[in-house]
Design a protein around this nucleic acid. Structure first.
Length: 625
RNA sequence: GCCCCGGUAGUGUAAUGGACAGCAUAAGGGCCUCCGGAGCCUUUAGUCAGGGUUCGAUUCCCUGCCGGGGCGCCA
């Protein structure tokens, strides 16, 4: 949404390595001469090799619309929403503004003058659109051959080649268990890192443990007062949950006794001073929390290449603070607190260090971000953090700019909305939090029940393996299929029902494809190798092929918009199209040997693309459901 | 008070300013001697209100209404 225009160095993607770009250097879209656009019948000398159909259409149009740059034309080309309207279309409305003619007439004139390249079977005027139809055979052959040759690499690019991008996500507090919102965060973090990785970047997955500060002292204080010598092991409670119980205890006690707040501040001071007893308590409780949180990461499949701890960075900010004071970016106010003055940037001021000299959250980021860029030589740092912190990040990034750090412009906040539940709101500071562990367990239970119903004889090990894959797919896909910037409603029952727009639905389609290939027997490999995809002529097959063809474009769309949901939507369409194909078109018992081979090749291609897309989303494709 | 973000069928959601606003669920009607029915086909139903820009607005601008979030020592 508001971060859509980010990633400056990615910028607007050129329309698929458009080859005419070189021929019109420096000509920016929009400045092409208003008056002199004419339709000229032109000689056509289009090389067909290594050019996709879109480029062919653009070049053919460029030949008759010489006054418009190829880029400009490429911008105007659309893909019709209805398949029966063709594969590419040129809306002529904008041309009518330039050429002072009715758009319908322009479309007609273009149709007459244009020379169709091979591979484009026909052009048709429909309303004010000139629609192009790719020859079925050509598209089928091209797409399927390409997928079978490139395998998992199909659709991936080297757009981000050489870029080092750090994706920081999860960021748990070590006084609480992970909650439902963390699952969205982690699904997004892993998927965006995978997406960058698939397009050539070195994507570094990073975590920051917020393991010190006033909030941590609260659970420590409660344990000190009420915990005695209890341990998670003794109490048979998951260790992070055990720690959180004391945090909750603090909150209820503090309502009765506001004096506790002062004790917290005292404890924080002692902690920062390195008081032995306080540190020992902190180490003990923090160890418990980390142990429990990591267990949840393992369950959910969250992985990190680097782990940072606030406790190791909060006190490294002194040089940055001093630089800020020297440059006048920061000021000390009457109370002694250090303030970043941001009014001239149109933002509220921001306290960067408390009056008593202790650190707050931003103090850590001041030091850690510098460390990230210097040590990891990043081209971009991304923070996957909820959108309630968007002002915080605007302030943080602005401070970096004011301090004159060269990398200030390479910081991005990937924000996301709240996860709501049917029963009510999901907020981390209210009592109604839904714990990640509970959600995962609930989903596993439902997945397992479904599997046991279907396969009562299944062995325990296999059952557990599938349960895990399916339940995680249900959660992750549900989290990723909607626009990250928006709040959305997570409906456990719906995602568990395995009907509709769900991860398991996609997995099921994949399993069906695998099943066909398995049953095709040993000769299938040879059949596919020698297959002639041009035999695929039905509308159903064509639709499926078109979606396979559009996959690379969807991936690029995801990168330029920093979003994952278009990929999920594409995957749903692809799965639906595959299921329809599966239902209507016999493969193993196809009418002819040629058709059988061609359809096997199509199934293989669909299988490859589904698996590849799922792996970007960090969802496991399974051969059997 | 100021700032940011939302408002699309009963419900959940999609749509670089373009064709008939897609999809899923729910509700109704169909399809298993046939490669896995966790599937497929089909019917009903929607852009908060009012202005503006545009050939064209769910999309951009303004106003209002409703909802969410944020605003110097909480993460």
């Amino acid at each position: 949404m508001q971060w859509a225009s980010s990633l400056a160095w990615i910028g607007r993607l050129p329309s698929t390595a458009f080859s005419l770009k070189k021929k019109s250097p420096g000509k920016r879209s929009g400045e092409s001469s208003r008056s002199g656009v004419q339709i000229l019948p032109g000689p056509l000398n289009i090389e067909e090799k290594n050019m996709d159909f879109r480029e062919m259409v653009v070049e053919a149009l460029h030949a008759v619309l010489k006054d418009l740059s190829g880029e400009r034309i490429a911008e105007m080309i659309e893909v019709p929403k209805q398949a029966n309207l063709g594969d590419y279309a040129l809306p002529c409305y904008r041309l009518s503004g330039i050429m002072k003619k009715a758009p319908q007439d322009i479309a007609k004139e273009l149709k007459e003058k244009i020379a169709l390249p091979k591979g484009i079977s026909r052009a048709e005027v429909i309303g004010a659109y000139l629609n192009f139809f790719v020859a079925n055979e050509a598209l089928a052959k091209d797409v399927i051959k390409r997928i079978l040759a490139e395998k998992q690499d199909y659709g991936k690019s080297d757009l981000l080649k050489g870029k080092r991008i750090m994706v920081e996500y999860s960021g748990p507090n070590t006084n609480k268990t992970l909650h439902l919102g963390h699952l969205r965060n982690q699904a997004l973090g892993m998927a965006i890192a995978n997406l960058y990785g698939a397009n050539g970047a070195r994507a570094i997955k990073a975590n920051i443990y917020s393991d010190r500060g006033a909030h941590i002292c609260k659970s420590m204080l409660a344990y000190e007062k009420f915990g005695g010598k209890k341990t998670p092991q003794g109490a048979h409670i998951k260790p992070d949950k055990f720690v959180m119980d004391y945090y909750v205890r603090y909150t209820t006690e503090a309502e009765k006794n506001p004096e506790l707040e002062k004790e917290v501040q005292e404890m924080l001071k002692k902690w920062e001073a390195g008081d032995k007893k306080t540190i020992a308590l902190w180490k003990k409780m923090n160890g418990w929390a980390l142990q429990g949180i990591r267990q949840t990461y393992k369950e959910f499949g969250s992985r990190f290449d680097v782990e940072f701890y606030e406790s190791k960075f909060y006190d490294k900010a002194q040089p940055v603070i001093e630089l800020g004071l020297k440059k006048g970016v920061f000021e000390k106010d009457e109370s002694g607190a250090i303030i970043a003055k941001l009014a001239s940037s149109g933002m509220p001021d921001k306290v960067v260090m408390r009056a008593d000299g202790t650190s707050i959250y931003i103090t850590n980021d001041l030091a850690l971000t510098k460390h990230k860029f210097e040590k990891y030589r990043l081209d971009e740092a991304l923070w996957v953090v909820g959108n309630e912190h968007s002002l915080y990040f605007r302030q943080l990034f602005r401070i970096f700019e004011l301090l004159g750090f060269s990398w200030a412009k390479k910081c991005r906040h990937m924000s996301y909305g709240l996860v709501n539940l049917p029963e009510g709101k999901m907020k981390s500071r209210e009592g109604t939090v839904v714990e990640a562990d509970d959600i995962i367990r609930e989903m596993q239970g439902l997945a397992m029940a479904e599997l046991q119903k279907r396969y009562p004889e299944m062995k325990k090990q296999e059952l557990q393996k599938r349960t895990r894959a399916i339940s995680l797919a249900a959660i992750k896909f549900f989290m990723l299929k909607v626009d990250a910037g928006r709040d959305f409603l997570f409906n456990p029952k719906e995602s568990i029902s395995f009907e509709g727009e769900t991860g398991p639905f996609v997995q099921y389609s994949y399993a069906r494809a695998c099943s066909i290939l398995r049953k095709a027997g040993k000769k299938a490999g040879a059949e596919i190798k020698n297959a002639n995809p041009e035999a695929l002529e039905s509308e159903i097959e064509k639709k499926l092929i078109a979606l396979l063809d559009a996959y690379p474009k969807t991936l690029q769309n995801c990168i330029s918009n920093m979003s994952l949901h278009p990929l999920c939507q594409h995957l749903l369409e692809l799965s639906s199209a595959f299921n329809l194909f599966y239902h209507e078109m016999p493969v193993l018992r196809a009418e002819t040997k040629e058709l059988r081979a061609a359809r096997l090749a199509l199934v293989k291609a669909a299988k490859i693309v589904i698996a590849s897309a799922l792996s970007v989303l960090d969802i496991e494709p399974i051969e059997e459901m």
